[in-house]
Amino acid sequence: MRLIAENLGGERGGEPVFSGIGFALEAGQALVVTGPNGSGKSTLLRVVAGLLPKMQGRLLLEGGGDEFPSIASACHYLGHQNAMKTALSVAENLRFWRAFQGEGRLDVEEALETVGLGGIGHLPFGYLSTGQRRRAAIAKLLVSHRPLWLLDEPTAGLDKASEGRFAGLMRGYCAEGGMIVAATHLPLGLEGAELRMGETG
């Protein structure tokens, strides 16, 4: 599976934010998108996911087959928000996304164990701290399978130990053939190509 972007340009509210971005990602590779605030990292991720229309250029997912006909269907998008309901328990939230997005290798309990939240699945999501919420959102990536992760500041609010655990998770995911595009300004502990924005564009 390959994700290819050529001469990609994006805009926000009619203003071009970046242009001429290109990369190619093979299965098992990661791309770390860095750059100062406002350089268009989040916009790039949303354009790749298909949530924003692209201004110019080409986006292509090769080898997705019937199961993943488009980038939108092949990706997990983890944005600034966690996409979890505060009134529901952590486990209920994850069970819903697992049922809605398709089942993955891990079930809800195992995924929570993996991110270090074992035993608190019964708590309402609203009771969790910022870092715990982020970890629950990361568990959401694990309960259904997607060959591509689009991560927008995935480690925002995480402590050192969780950051390390998440880096291990991402390395394991890449080793199994997953692709990651992560926008960040913190070191993620992830080996991969780096795309600097705000300088080239």
């Binding site: 488009s70 939108a72 269907s73 998008y77 944005g79 928000q81 966690n82 996409a83 979890m84 996304w97």
Partner: peptide
Amino acid sequence: REDGSLDLLVLGHDRH
């Protein structure tokens, strides 16, 4: 929309 679920519902278009 506020908690980001809407993005994922929109992205799920090919599945549902």
